[in-house]
């Protein structure tokens, strides 16, 4: 119960933060903000002084700043995000259009990372200090030290430019997924693997692990019956926190590979100072984090009865 309340509070705080930040951004724009918003609504050709004045009065842009801020946040609460200043389309439509592309890329990347990372981590954690453990430590440290744009760059140079196996950019076919999702997955897997490894090593050192073997279970039976479920709890918790890393990766990777998703749109919106779009995308990303983590809270409650008490 309190978990749900604290997630709601978090969501509210996220909305207020983004609303305030975009409001300040709006006010700090060069030129007449009202004119720009009016142009966003009606198109540049249809804007006149009267339309700009109407917007100014509506948003309280000529009044005191705190009144205008309340007005701005009020629009936010009513889920009225306005229109893009660049295309003139409603922000909601633009985002709905891009969200699918980003979500499918992110999902493929997360699944790929889960196939690579945790199994290696669990095997390494069963033999701490062993050969696999040391190799994994070196590899994951190495990958963690490489920023994702650099991974993308290396993959492009090798797989697209040198070997010409895969397209460097584009969207639509399945093969377009390979490079961007691999770029994202490598970074995620490097961390997943460490989390799984540490969790496994910790669990294999717990009294209940030893006791399971003393009861007569084989190592395999112990792992299947007492290992996987226990490892999954910290791993899933961590996946929720990793959402932020994932989104940062998506922003960069979409820009590098020209992927028509929300991250790419966000960078464009910032670049062209399209404040309503910035607000909309930022809100979707921030609330996405809260939503994903709320779902993970529920999943953990289901997996670990101690947290439900």
């Amino acid at each position: 119960m309190s978990a749900i309340v604290s997630r709601l509070v978090q969501a509210l705080m996220v909305a207020i933060l983004i609303g305030t930040a975009t409001f300040v951004m709006m006010r700090s724009l060069p030129g007449d903000a009202a004119w720009r918003i009016a142009a966003g609504r009606y198109g540049y050709d249809n804007v006149d002084a009267a339309a700009a004045d109407a917007v100014r009065a509506e948003l309280g842009l000529d009044g005191p700043a705190h009144m205008a801020l309340l007005q701005w946040l009020g629009d936010l609460v009513r889920l009225d995000f306005g229109n893009s200043l660049v295309t003139g389309q409603p922000v909601v439509d633009e985002i709905a259009h891009q969200l699918g592309a980003s979500a499918s890329l992110a999902l493929v990347a997360v699944l790929l990372s889960l196939v690579i990372g945790p199994p290696l981590g669990i095997l390494a954690g069963l033999r701490p200090g062993g050969r696999l453990d040391r190799a994994l430590l070196v590899t994951s440290t190495g990958i963690k030290a490489v920023p994702q744009f650099l991974v993308a760059l290396v993959l492009i140079v090798i797989l697209a430019v040198q070997l010409r196996w895969l397209p460097a950019a584009g969207h639509g076919a399945a093969r377009h997924f390979i490079l961007p999702s691999l770029t994202l997955a490598l970074g995620l897997a490097a961390v997943n693997a460490r989390i799984a490894r540490d969790a496994m090593a910790r669990i294999a050192d717990m009294p209940f692990w030893r006791f399971a073997q003393w009861k007569g279970l084989s190592e395999r039976q112990t792992l299947l019956r007492h290992g996987l479920r226990n490892v999954s709890v910290p791993l899933i918790t961590y996946l929720g926190l990793q959402f932020v890393t994932l989104v940062e990766g998506v922003i960069i990777v979409e820009s590098v590979f020209g992927w028509p998703g929300i991250g790419h749109a966000l960078v464009h919106a910032i670049f062209s100072r399209d404040v309503p779009m910035v607000q909309g995308t930022a809100l979707v990303l921030g609330l996405g984090f809260v939503l994903v983590n709320a779902a993970i809270d529920l999943a953990i409650r289901h997996l670990d009865p101690r947290t439900a008490a």
Binding site: F208, R210, W214, N230, P305
Partner: peptide, 23 residues
């Protein structure tokens, strides 16, 4: 190893830590 559980059973020092918390 093959005797554990079948010939010898071992009682752990701290039973409340020796049970799988998720089972």
């Amino acid at each position: 190893r093959g005797l554990w559980g079948r010939e010898i059973s071992v009682l752990p020092q701290e039973p409340w830590l020796s049970l799988d918390p998720l089972m």
